[in-house]
Design a protein around this nucleic acid. Structure first.
Length: 585
RNA sequence: GCCGACUUAGCUCAGCUGGUAGAGCAACUGAUUUGUAAUCAGUAGGUCAUCGGUUCAAUUCCGAUAGUCGGCUCCA
């Protein structure tokens, strides 16, 4: 058992930690051949990896839980046993436990080692633990999975058991409810129910079909995105899906990115690759002519569809796919403009994210890797400083990911937080010191000399596929009005009112609202239920009363019956709602 | 890719220890003309993922393949 540092004082972490030990002791009792390896506390619970080649089954979870209850009931104390390095190594060697020996050998030489023992189970551990096993009151084992020793797939495959524990039963139950809630929001489920998209095995894994309703939402996102980019001083580019091998050779992708690229195709005896990135194309636009410093900065954006090889096991709905459209842009500027451009980009990024209903973020500044990097140190420092200043200027709090930058430049990554607190990596703003060099990009400065421009690569939504998936889960399918594929459903009570309902539908359509009329011979309750399940924001009921008075009965999918309105009164509400882009739950 | 689980009608799922399948919803047809989350009746729909093996007999047992799901790793 190895704990994450910094959690020593958190009572929930301590309980989880102890629960992991108890689980390990239960596993060893039930499966004497299973060797405990490592098992930390994680964000929502804990896990423990065992070397046990036969593997565990789902049924074993119940058995292990039962055994854990017995151990808890015995109320054994947790004993802390300080031990010297040599003794510890001897202890685990005698037990034939090479994993623990490896862990000990990797610990700093001056580390004070301790064992923790409860009942007849002893484990290497920093602690602390609860006093007695009975202190672990609320726990549950959740799943089993394969994992590699130290996350390295060339090393032994281990069996991981995930579990969670809390101080009280109530907290545990609340957590389990949250897991259920998350399942209900699963974009794959909602995507099917609302007919937004599908992934078809005859086409291939990770390749998305956008159905009419999903495509409608995408169209709205794209239109908004393009309009805002023009307003923000960007120009749009379009580029092809494939390019010659030479291009990817020059860009370096065939060297450092080839494992993510698909095999080439032969065209007239030349090799062409389907693009995994848009950058080389944008650079070729730049290189089409000579540029003056007076023309910079260029801000070139493209909704560029790229294809990247992802291992079959990692594909996941819209969140992880093999073909996706990046909301990409490259900013090419001078050294003097660079600071301002970074600031503008961050502001623009947050503006766009807020428009789609995301206003909680986790921001990371990733700096120069220790050894593998291109460009001189001063360039890195200046650029990191620019990113830092921009974040500070916007009073954004961020974490520094020391050495976490790409080899070609420092970057800012923004994770957005959804309605139930999960984080999703979407936006990224990266300096690129590599490609301008490789493609020998230049501009003519005021001094008549050629200079290397700065290039910033950025995506705000990341990919439309993933962003759509995140939005589906964020809104649980209940999109804000401006994004709803069907905004209004007109429901008739009887055939006599189809005429009037048709006229209302037509008028709303003329005003550019997305409206459908349900004039089937079904009861009102049935039609409302269906519209509710399809999460249509507004329903309009048309019956005898409305027909004679020339009014509309308006129902909102969340607020319920809004009563009787005139068409103009209703339009007023709609126009107001259409313009308030943010409409998060 | 690796570990594990799973794959039965469009969807959600039954189907005991082998004797070739069933429900609800959806679809279709008809009746009903309905007031804020499910009207009634009927019809149709399945090579039980695919291929192979064991067996008199396989949805059921075994193997391979494909796909999906939970993880590992990586990332938009």
């Amino acid at each position: 058992m190895v704990c994450r540092p910094g959690f020593e004082d958190n009572p929930t972490e301590i309980v989880r930690h102890s629960a992991a030990h108890i689980m390990a002791s239960a596993v060893v009792r039930l499966f004497p051949n299973a060797k405990p390896t490592i098992g930390p506390v994680i964000e929502d619970g804990f896990f423990y990896d065992f070397d046990y080649p036969p593997g565990f089954t789902e049924n074993d979870l119940q058995k292990i839980e039962d055994e854990m209850r017995k151990i808890i009931k015995s109320n054994a104390p947790f004993e802390r046993i300080p031990i010297s390095r040599e003794e510890a190594i001897r202890f685990f060697e005698e037990r034939g436990d090479a994993y623990k020996v490896e862990i000990i050998n990797d610990l700093p030489a001056d580390a004070a080692l301790t064992l923790y023992k409860h009942g007849d189970f002893t484990d290497l551990c920093r602690g602390p633990h609860v006093g007695y096993t009975k202190k672990v009151k609320a726990f549950k084992l959740l799943s089993i999975a394969g994992a590699y020793w130290r996350g390295d797939e060339t090393k032994a495959q281990l069996q991981r058991i995930y579990g969670t524990a809390f101080l009280t039963r109530e907290e545990l139950d609340a957590h389990l409810v949250k897991i259920e809630e998350a399942k209900k929001r699963d974009h794959r489920r909602i995507g099917k129910d609302l007919e937004l998209f599908s992934i078809n095995e005859n086409i291939g894994g990770g390749l998305v079909l956008w159905h009419p309703k999903g495509a409608r939402i995408r169209h709205i996102i794209e239109s908004f995105w393009k309009d805002e980019h023009f307003k923000a001083g960007y120009d749009l580019l379009y580029s092809p899906h494939i390019g010659r091998a030479d291009l990817w050779e020059t860009s370096g992708h065939l060297g450092f990115y080839s494992e993510n690229m698909y095999s080439p195709m032969d065209i007239d005896e030349l090799k062409y690759y389907i693009k995994p990135m848009n950058c080389p194309f944008h650079i070729m636009v730049y290189k089409d002519k000579l540029h003056s410093y007076r023309d910079l900065p260029y801000r070139w954006a493209e909704l560029g569809t790229v294809y990247r090889y992802e291992r079959s096991g990692v594909l996941h709905g819209l969140m992880r796919v093999r073909g996706f459209t990046q909301d990409d842009a490259h900013i090419i500027c001078t050294k003097d403009q660079m600071q301002d451009e970074v600031l503008r980009t961050i502001r623009f990024c947050l503006y766009i994210l807020r428009a789609f209903g995301f206003d909680h973020y986790e921001i990371y500044l990733a700096t120069k890797p220790k050894d593998k990097y291109v460009g001189d140190v001063e360039l890195w420092q200046r650029s990191e400083e620019a990113l830092r200043r921009a974040l500070d200027a916007e009073s954004l709090s961020y974490q520094v990911d020391e050495g976490g930058g790409a080899f070609y430049g420092p970057k800012i990554d923004i994770k957005i937080e959804d309605a139930i607190g999960r984080k999703w990596q979407c936006s990224t703003i990266q300096f690129d010191f590599n490609l301008p060099e490789r493609f020998d990009m230049t501009y003519v400065g005021a001094d008549g000399q050629r200079h290397r421009p700065y290039m910033v690569h950025r995506a705000l939504l990341g990919s439309l596929e993933r962003f759509f998936g995140v939005m589906i889960e964020h809104y649980a399918g209940h999109f804000p009005f401006w994004l709803s594929p069907v905004q209004i459903k007109v429901l008739t009570i009887a055939d006599d009112f189809i005429d009037y309902a048709g006229r209302v539908t037509e008028k709303l359509k003329q005003k550019n609202f997305r409206v459908e009329c349900d004039s089937r011979g079904e009861k009102l309750g049935y039609k409302i239920r269906e519209a509710q399940l399809q999460k249509v924001p507004y329903m309009i009921v048309i019956g005898e009363k409305e027909n004679t008075e020339g009014t509309l009965s308006v129902r909102h999918s969340k607020k319920g019956d809004l009563g009787s309105l005139t068409l103009d009164g209703f339009l007023e509400i709609l126009i107001k709602e259409q313009h308030s882009l943010q409409d998060a739950d």
